[in-house]
């Protein structure tokens, strides 16, 4: 029997890798942002899993609170990025930064 904490901690590590890859590889900024959200929740999952390492005492509330804060901050970042992206799309009809699709910046 594998402790849930370990299992979800490893899952979080995997999600970080998947999210990071998408974040770095995509030229499309919305996909990049979506991947960033996957990356973020992977970080939180790792963090939260660590808080469940001693189930017999109960979960550690501090990481939970921090994760809630983190989720809100992550949303704030995404919201600003999306608003900027929409402006960029309207102004240039592209959803990528010029240098990432081989145009001069």
């Amino acid at each position: 029997m594998i402790p849930s904490a370990t299992l979800f901690g490893l899952a979080g590590a995997a999600l970080v890798g998947i999210g990071l890859y998408g974040f770095l590889a995509h030229a499309h900024l919305l996909r990049r942002l979506l991947s960033f959200n996957v990356l973020g929740s992977g970080v939180f999952l790792m963090f939260g899993a660590a808080a469940w390492r001693s189930p017999w005492i109960g979960a550690d509330a501090v990481p939970h609170a921090l994760i809630i804060t983190g989720i809100v901050v992550k949303l704030a970042g995404s919201a600003l990025a999306i608003a900027l992206l929409v402006q960029l799309a309207r102004a240039t009809r592209r959803a990528a930064l010029p240098e990432d699709e081989g145009r001069p910046p």
């Binding site: 030229a27 960029l88 309207r90 240039t92 009809r93 699709e101």
Partner: peptide, 15 residues
């Protein structure tokens, strides 16, 4: 955002 981008016709090179 998907809606806005579609309406603006904004694309990006595939991955």
């Amino acid at each position: 955002a998907v809606g806005h981008l579609t309406r603006a016709g904004a694309g990006a090179p595939p991955r």
